[in-house]
Amino acid sequence: MSLYSVLIVDDEEEFRDMTAKRLSKRDLQCECAPDGDTALGMIAEKSYDVVLLDVKMPGRDGIETLREIKRIAPMTEVVMLTGHASVESGINGIRYGAFDYLMKPMELDPLFEKLNAAYERKRTQQEKIKMAQIKKNMARPS
């Protein structure tokens, strides 16, 4: 059984496939998209726990895609990827609601750790909302 679902969005096919393969071995359910528009289409259809999103892509860039993801699926956590150490894209990522960012190339362990942390946050958020809902329902006189 998979732990949670990840959508990998990157224009580099080799990176995408390799990452998906290695994360699948660690029981994550991975899907891939080659660009921002494809990713947004997939997210509209189905919910993903975490999105791994490259900043630099042809067409709709990472930051734009991030803002759109946060609009249509606010609970989904996004981890940004940057090809080179760019403070600007890191800051913009945080500003528009990304969970965190990673610099390429990265090792599998830190990536896995970061995705787990992102998923952990999503899960606790969801639980809190659920609990609040239950309390609200219980408080309401029937």
């Binding site: 760019s86 403070v87 800051i91």
Partner: peptide, 20 residues
């Protein structure tokens, strides 16, 4: 240089996060 740039980016972005 790669190391310095990567660590400086890490510091800068995380400080931004703290302020945020």
């Amino acid at each position: 240089m790669t190391f310095i740039r990567a660590r400086c980016t890490l510091v800068t972005v995380n400080v931004f996060k703290i302020i945020h």
